[in-house]
């Protein structure tokens, strides 16, 4: 038959898949570089507000995070519905903040300690009471560079 003869005559060599791993590796490296490990399990709901005057947080290792928000639904039975502070991966009180900052501080090279920033991830529906308390605790602990985490306004 004609069709058989045609196939035999024009059979192309199979497409080489040898470069596929390279492409995938490239993607892999891209994701490894642009993303950061999810450091801790979120115990409070945080939707950051919008703002326009944003600055970027450089050096991730010099940043510590404080979350303030209402406990997630699953934990509302034990933790209540009032806004709480989360440090690392657990709920915390105001009194725990200095120790938390100190623990982060000792891990950092002495020459860079002045550049440590605290990123406050605060839910937009939280009232200022708890925020002010945290701010006061930070001031007392000598951690003055603070970044109110926010999303760019569209």
């Amino acid at each position: 038959m004609a069709s058989i003869r045609k196939k035999k005559g024009k059979s192309l060599p199979p497409v080489s898949t040898a470069s596929l791993p390279d492409i995938i590796f490239m993607l892999l490296f891209f994701f490894m570089v642009v993303t950061v490990m999810r450091d801790s399990e979120r115990k409070v709901d945080v939707t950051t507000p919008n703002a326009t005057e944003l600055s970027k947080l450089e050096k991730k290792s010099l940043v510590n995070y404080i979350y303030i928000g209402r406990p997630i639904e699953k934990l509302q039975k034990e933790a209540g519905t009032k806004p709480r502070i989360q440090l690392g991966d657990k709920f915390a009180n105001l009194a725990d903040i200095p120790l938390f900052l100190e623990k982060h501080r000792v891990k950092i090279n002495e020459s860079q300690r002045g550049a440590i920033k605290t990123s406050l991830r605060i839910d937009k529906d939280v009232t200022m009471g708890i925020v002010t308390d945290v701010k006061t605790a930070l001031r007392k602990a000598g951690q003055l560079a603070v970044n109110y985490s926010a999303k760019p306004k569209v």
Binding site: S55, K56, K60, S119, A145, V146, N147, Y148, S149, K151
Partner: peptide
């Protein structure tokens, strides 16, 4: 999101 409003207390 590593952006935010930078403040010096």
């Amino acid at each position: 999101e590593d952006k935010g409003v930078l403040v010096k207390l």
